[in-house]
Every structure is written in structure tokens, then in C-alpha cells.
Write a protein that binds this DNA or RNA. Structure first.
Length: 442
RNA sequence: GGGACCGUAGCGCAGUUGGUUAGCGCGUCUCCCUGUCACGGAGAAGGUCGCGGGUUCGAGUCCCGUCGGUCCCGCCA
């Protein structure tokens, strides 16, 4: 008999069907018992004879043939998409037995410490609440693609093995490359700029690698970078304008397609009222000083505490949980960042900050070959290492800009997760590559 | 790289000013249960309290070391 998806059982009342999935829980009442069965579409309650399910355990993979019945009024479960029906099992076929679970998967929440959650990733990812994170992430990435494709952007694939540091300074992973040394790319930055010379408007969904020796709740050694870049900008502010469009699109898609997932976490997408507030770094610092008395003026960047404070301000003052901070100091930004012609100490760059941390970073780039060479010189970056990149400018690149989004950060903050590792399927950090590094030999 | 905190059963936790046989919830196993949906009820198994040393009549508890982990800062997406 052909397999029916669990959610489709709602339309099969009175019919005999066959469903397959994983056992979530067994509620044994002696002569009768209930199984909750889950497949990719949802969960259904199966009514069974007690003797038939004595050996059935959570995560066993089974197929059930039976009759779809509507439940009596008083037995309807309004928390379940299939709560008005149940399946009366006639035949139970065990495809695969699961080993005894190391923890309880049946509850609404998966109450585990982070190391346990990650040590058992193939199992914990199956939990509805964990699964929901990656459904949201898929929609975040898809919305990014859609928003840009609709604006005539072209997707390209950036390499991740690179010859030298992308942005100078930051820590990178070396790779043994035949008899030479290569690195894992920190960002597709240079390639997306080159691609502006090809397609004008480009984006890429790629991986970025950072060997920063930092263990925090918002850093990964490998993360998903949503990068875009576009040419022929008339004004630098077109860049944050586009970033704003993209994040709004991400929110609207998540809201539209992830209602159930948001509900599981009891959250909504961040509130935005109209246009995002957009202020210069120095203005932000003035506000923070006025509000807290902290001496932040003149600092080259916002500390995490400052970021929390300024998002709080944006919420109170503008009803927006997101804010765009612009004009970071030239000294703090990479060599390709465009200095403000009216104030060369600051750049035409921005961060999009939400719920207390950076989500996006971007800005206008230097597109003049000579100016770029000078900027590299000032930053102590050797142009010799960037010959291929520099060709793009040598042979004419229009005024351009772009931004990058951390997909895990966006996912994390939409759902209110406390650690970015929860928003990464198989997080890599200083202490883990699938398994804890402390448990393997060097 | 700097700092703070935490390691007690498979999992999540409690354990008082140091005091006798180290507890609770979930899970597991046995038994009971025809309407539960985190089902319920009765019982059982499961721990050298991360490891090493010290103080003490006595250490899960205090001290030192060590290993493992979490969080904050710097840096960033």
C-alpha cells in the first residue's frame, strides 16, 4: 500500500492508509496504547492494541496500516495539527529498531546542556524544537536569495581555498596545499567584488572560516555568510537601503512560512516601524553617553554593552528592534572600505544591529585602483598578495558596495537562542569539530 | 589572549554552618491500567560526588593542583 503523509491524513477520514515515521512516545494503558508517530509533515496519534506495541520504543522507524478516524469532540487535541483525527492501527511493521535514547526526547523542550546537545547531534536535531531552528534558517537563506534574485542579482560560487589573508590581520586557518601554503577564506569579499565586474549585481551563499581564538556565544569557526555586492551605486546609502530591503524580506518570509516554528519558541520576528533608524557611530555614542554616563565617545567601535544599549534606545525611540549604525572609523575598517570624502577619518560603512548584536556589516568599497593601492599601503597590506583581485580595478570597476550577513546570527536572534552553536547544524569552534577536540589525539 | 563561574546516576538538577545508609524529576527494567496526548499507579536497578593531593576525629561540602565545561571581555558575521 502506498505511503500517506501524516498531515494528509486529515483528508482521509474513514479510509485505510499507510503511514511511516519515527515513534516519538508510547503511552501504554495496558489493553490499549497510543503512539505518537512523526514524519516530515507532522505528528499523528496512533491508537493501538497494547500487546502490539510492547516492544516499540522512541525513534523506532515503523509503518502503520490502519483506519483514519475522527476523534470524538471531547478527545480533540487542539495542540496538534492532526488533533481532530487519529489512526487506528491494524498492522504495525517495524522497519528499524532504535537504541535506547541517552535522554528524553518526548517532551516539548529538549532540556540539555549545550555539550550534550552537540555530542548527540544526529539525534537532537530530530527534536521538533531543534528541527524548527533549521527550518527557519532555510527560509532565511531562501529569502535572501529571493530578495536579490528579484532585483536582478546573480548568484555565484566563491572559492574557499584562498592564497592569502582576505582582509589582513584577522586569524586564518592555514591549509597544506601540495607543497605550498594556502588558507581557508575568511570571507568571499574579494571574489564578490571581482564578480561585480562581471555581472554588476551578485550574491553568494557560502562558508567563511575564522581562526579567532575566541569562545563566545556568538562566534563560530565556520559560518554561513550571505554576501552580496553591486555596482553603479549613485550614493553610498543605496547599500544600507538594500540591506534594509533584504532583512525586511527575510522577516516577512519567516513570518509567512515559519508560523509554527516561531510559535514553538514563543517569539515573533523583530519589530520594525517603517524605515530603520540610521545614525552615525558618533551620534550613537553621544546617545549612549547621555543615557548611561559611560565615556564611550571617541571609541572606535561599540562594545557589546553599547550595542545592547543602542538597540534599546532604537526600540524606545523608534519602535524598531533593528538599527543601522554608520560611519565607522577608517582605522577600524578593512582596506577596501570607502572613506567619507567629507570626513576621511570615517568610512561609508555600516553595521545593522538587532537585539543587541551585529547582524550585517557592509558599505561602499574603494573602486579606484590607485586609491585602493594607497589604502592597502596605509593598512600595511602587501598588494603583491592581491594581484588577481587588483586586476578587477585595473580594468575598470564601477562605484560599488555590498554587505554580508551571518546566517546563524540572524537565525539565532529571530528565535531568541542564547548560543549561536544552537543555530549551526554541526558547529565548529575552538573546542569542537563534530566531536570535542579534547577527546581525540593530536 | 584576559577574567568570572561550574563538574553529584544515561539526562536535567537539589544537597543547609563540614556529621552517620548521597536525594529529586525524567529515562530504563518488572507489574497494574480502554482515552491518554510530557498519561497515571506500584516496585526495582543504576553513583568510588571529574581526577590527584591536603586540612580535619570526619570532606559532595574547605584549600591547592589538574583535566573537562559554561559565561563575560577583546575581535568579529
Amino acid at each position: 500500500m502506498e505511503r500517506t503523509l501524516i498531515l494528509d491524513c486529515n483528508n482521509k477520514v474513514g479510509q485505510e492508509i499507510r503511514v511511516c515515521g519515527w515513534v516519538q512516545t508510547r503511552r501504554d494503558h495496558g489493553k490499549i496504547a497510543f503512539l505518537d508517530l512523526m514524519d516530515r509533515s507532522g505528528i499523528i496519534q496512533v491508537f493501538c492494541r497494547g500487546e502490539d506495541v510492547k516492544e516499540i520504543h522512541p525513534q523506532d522507524v515503523i509503518c502503520i496500516t490502519g483506519l483514519v478516524n475522527s476523534r470524538p469532540e471531547n478527545l480533540i487535541n487542539s495542540n496538534l495539527a492532526t488533533g481532530k483525527i487519529e489512526l487506528h492501527a491494524k498492522q504495525i511493521e517495524v522497519l528499524v529498531k532504535a537504541a535506547e535514547l541517552p535522554f528524553d526526547m518526548g517532551g516539548k523542550d529538549l532540556d540539555l546542556q549545550l555539550p550534550t546537545l552537540l555530542d548527540h547531534r544526529p539525534l537532537t536535531l530530530r527534536h521538533p524544537k531543534v528541527k524548527a531552528i533549521f527550518k527557519v534558517q532555510e527560509v532565511v537563506i531562501d529569502a535572501f536569495r529571493k530578495a536579490l534574485t528579484e532585483k536582478d542579482f546573480i548568484e555565484f560560487q566563491a572559492p574557499t581555498i584562498v592564497p592569502a589573508a582576505t582582509e589582513g590581520g584577522a586569524e586564518i586557518f592555514p591549509v597544506d596545499y601540495y607543497q605550498y601554503k594556502a588558507y581557508l577564506g575568511q570571507s568571499p569579499q574579494l571574489y564578490k567584488q571581482i564578480m561585480v565586474g562581471v555581472f554588476e549585481r551578485v550574491f553568494t551563499v557560502g562558508r567563511a572560516y575564522r581562526a579567532e581564538p575566541s569562545v563566545t556565544t556568538r562566534h563560530l569557526s565556520e559560518y554561513i555568510s550571505l554576501d552580496c555586492e553591486f555596482g553603479f551605486i549613485e550614493s553610498w546609502s543605496e547599500v544600507p537601503d538594500l540591506a534594509e530591503d533584504v532583512i525586511k524580506r527575510i522577516f516577512s518570509e519567516v513570518e509567512k512560512r515559519c508560523g509554527r516554528e516561531l510559535e514553538l519558541y514563543g517569539v515573533g520576528v523583530p519589530q520594525i516601524a517603517g524605515k530603520l533608524p540610521r545614525i552615525k557611530l558618533t551620534e550613537a555614542q553621544q546617545i549612549i553617553k547621555t543615557r548611561t554616563g559611560r565615556e564611550v565617545i571617541g571609541e572606535p567601535d561599540l562594545s557589546p554593552e553599547d550595542e545592547r544599549e543602542i538597540t534599546e534606545w532604537a526600540k524606545e525611540k523608534h519602535g524598531s528592534e533593528l538599527i543601522i549604525i554608520t560611519h565607522y572609523p577608517t582605522s577600524k575598517r578593512p582596506f577596501y572600505t570607502y572613506p567619507d570624502p567629507e570626513d576621511p577619518e570615517h568610512t561609508l560603512s555600516f553595521d545593522l544591529i538587532g537585539r543587541g548584536v551585529e547582524w550585517f556589516t557592509g558599505g561602499q568599497r574603494i573602486n579606484d585602483h590607485q586609491q585602493l593601492l594607497e589604502s592597502m599601503k596605509k593598512k600595511g597590506v602587501n598588494p603583491e598578495n592581491f594581484q588577481l583581485y587588483l586586476q578587477a580595478f585595473q580594468y575598470g570597476l564601477p562605484p560599488e558596495g555590498g554587505f554580508a550577513i551571518g546566517a546563524e546570527r540572524v537565525t539565532m536572534h529571530i528565535l531568541g537562542l542564547s548560543n549561536i552553536r544552537e543555530a549551526s547544524l554541526f558547529p565548529r569552534d575552538m573546542e569542537r569539530v563534530d566531536v570535542r577536540l579534547s577527546t581525540i589525539k593530536k
